[in-house]
C-alpha cells in the first residue's frame, strides 16, 4: 500500500510539471488584463494536435514540432488578444463570454480536422519506462516534460523579476495607470502576456500529447484545471502556481489510487471550492477575489 501511495505521489508530482505550465499562462493573462481566458485549455490542445499532425504526416518527434506549434499557438493567442481588444463595455464579463465562444470554436475546429479519436504519441522512446529507486515507475516523456516545465517556470520567474519587460508586466498587473505614467505601454505588455501565455501553452500541449492522451474535450478540462490551480496559488505567485499544480496533480493520482479513477475530477473541484470559501485569496496570494 505504501508503495502504491509513493507511486501516486511521484506520478502526481510529474503531472504537476505540465499543469504548472498551463496554469501560469492563464495566470499571466489574468494578472495583466483581469481576464480569464476560457480558451486557454484549447490553446494547449491546439499545440498537442500540431504535434500529432507533424508526427503523423512527417514522422517528427514531438520535441521537433515545438517550433511549428509555437507559431500556430502564438498566432492564435494574438488573434484572441485582438478580439478581446474589440470589446467596448463591461470587459470583465463580456470577455468571459467571448473567450468561452472562442473555446467552442477551437474545440469544434479540432473536432472537424482531427476527429474525436483519442490521440497520443506513437514514439516509443518517450514511452520507455524510467524506474527511480527500484519502485517508482514513470515514462520518459513524463520526466522530460516535468523537467522542461520546471525550467520554463524558473525562466518565467526570472524574466518577471529581472528583465525590464517582466517588471513592466508586473507593474501593469498591479496598477495599470501608474505603469502608464512610468512610460509602460499597457497594450504592448498585454499582448506580450498573451504571447508568453501562448509559449507556455505550446510546451504544455506537446507535453500532454507526449505524456498523456488528447481528444477534443480535453481543452475544457485543462482550462478548468488551470483555473483551479490559479485560484489555489493566489494571483501573481509563480512558486504558488507550481505548488498548486503539484497539489492538484498529487490529489488526482491519490484519488485514483485510494478511491477510484472516476472521482479524480471531483478532487480538483472540491479543493477549488474549499479554497474559494475558506481562503479566497489563495494559499499564497494577496489579492482577494471576494467583493470588497
Amino acid at each position: 500500500m505504501l508503495e502504491l501511495i509513493l507511486q501516486a505521489l511521484y506520478s502526481g508530482l510529474l503531472a504537476g510539471g505540465y499543469y504548472a505550465m498551463i496554469a501560469l499562462g492563464l495566470a499571466l493573462v489574468f494578472g495583466t488584463m483581469r481576464i480569464i481566458n476560457l480558451a486557454h485549455g484549447e490553446l494547449v490542445l491546439l499545440a498537442a494536435y500540431v504535434a500529432f499532425e507533424m508526427e503523423r504526416s512527417f514522422g517528427w518527434t514531438p520535441l521537433a514540432s515545438i517550433p511549428v506549434a509555437l507559431v500556430v499557438v502564438g498566432l492564435t493567442a494574438l488573434v484572441i488578444y485582438l478580439l478581446i481588444g474589440r470589446i467596448r463595455q463591461d470587459r470583465e464579463l463580456n470577455s468571459l463570454i467571448l473567450t468561452f465562444g472562442i473555446a467552442i470554436v477551437l474545440t469544434n475546429l479540432i473536432l472537424m480536422i482531427w476527429s474525436a479519436d483519442i490521440r497520443s504519441t506513437s514514439n516509443s522512446w518517450f514511452m520507455d519506462g524510467v524506474v527511480l529507486g527500484d519502485t517508482l515507475f514513470s515514462m520518459r516523456g513524463e520526466v522530460i516534460f516535468c523537467v522542461i516545465g520546471v525550467l520554463l517556470l524558473a525562466a518565467t520567474y526570472w524574466w518577471l523579476n529581472h528583465t525590464w519587460q517582466g517588471r513592466a508586466l508586473r507593474a501593469v498587473a498591479s496598477n495599470r495607470d501608474a505603469a502608464k505614467l512610468m512610460g509602460v505601454n499597457p497594450a504592448r505588455i498585454e499582448a506580450l502576456s498573451f504571447l508568453v501565455s501562448g509559449v507556455l501553452a505550446t510546451f504544455a500541449g506537446v507535453a500532454v500529447y507526449t505524456a498523456s492522451v488528447v481528444f477534443p474535450a480535453v481543452g475544457h478540462n485543462l482550462t478548468i484545471k488551470a483555473f483551479v490551480i490559479t485560484v489555489l496559488a493566489g494571483m501573481g505567485s509563480v512558486p504558488g502556481v507550481l505548488l498548486g499544480a503539484v497539489l492538484i496533480g498529487v490529489g488526482e493520482t491519490l484519488t485514483t489510487t485510494l478511491a477510484k479513477p472516476s472521482l479524480q475530477e471531483l478532487t480538483g473541484m472540491v479543493i477549488f471550492l474549499l479554497i474559494l470559501f475558506l481562503r479566497p485569496s489563495g494559499l499564497f496570494g494577496r489579492k482577494g477575489m471576494v467583493k470588497k
Partner: peptide, 22 residues
C-alpha cells in the same frame, strides 16, 4: 452542412454578438 463540429456556430455567434452587438 457539417455533421461534426457544427456547435462551432454557437462559438462564432457568442464572440460575434459580444463584439458587434452586446
Amino acid at each position: 452542412l457539417m455533421p461534426s463540429g457544427h456547435q462551432l456556430v454557437f462559438g462564432v455567434l457568442l464572440g460575434g454578438m459580444v463584439i458587434l452587438g452586446p
